[in-house]
Amino acid sequence: MSPKWAMAIDLDRCTGCGACVVACVAENNIPVVGEAEVEKGRLMQWLRVARYWDGEYPEAQAIYLPVPCMQCERAPCETVCPVYATYHNEDGLNAMVYNRCVGTRYCANNCPYSVRVFNWYDHKWEKPLDEQLSPDLTTRSRGVMEKCTFCIQRIRRAKETAAGEMREIRDGEVVPACVQTCPPGALLFGDLSDPHSGITRKLKDPRRFRLMEHLGTEPRVAYLKRQKGAGR
């Protein structure tokens, strides 16, 4: 049976430290574009930590919301791509194929979560920074859309290891970079098709909600609501 990868983000645990973003940038060969480009809204991060303020000063509290690609089951980005560069794969993931992308940016414009980023330039990693590039995945070129892949290279590696050992992938074997690095353990990743997996149990929590659920995009990323005043 093909897996149904999903992520749970526990907002009660998230401290907004941004370690997930750093891990994502390091893992996925994401270029750092610099201040001037960020001002133009061309930040390349696949995962952002959105910050909201709750209440008025002196009682104001910051709320942090990590937003990766939601891997929607009914993804608005897929229907608008004229070249079929983004599509749903057999694992139910919203795949992005760089070598097929022609850069219309329709997908990013149709994404309600604004998680797709575009390569406006060919990005260079000056020596010795090129040494940190991961050989497991592409460095994208100019004119190509990109987004969070749930660390597909890690999913592939786990699949290969499991196939080599003639077994199914175990729960917890696939760990995306953001999940691996999260210091308070706010992020959890796993297979929803396995009734005993950690993620299936975690998502039975009544605090569960999904972003912009009314749009009917059926996101694979679910959040666990922050409880007011609980322990803070």
């Binding site: 057999e90 795949a95 992005m96 194929v97 097929r100 592939r156």
Partner: peptide
């Protein structure tokens, strides 16, 4: 598998 993501990512 002939899924694109098998070889291109």
């Amino acid at each position: 598998s002939i899924d694109c993501w098998t070889c291109h990512y």
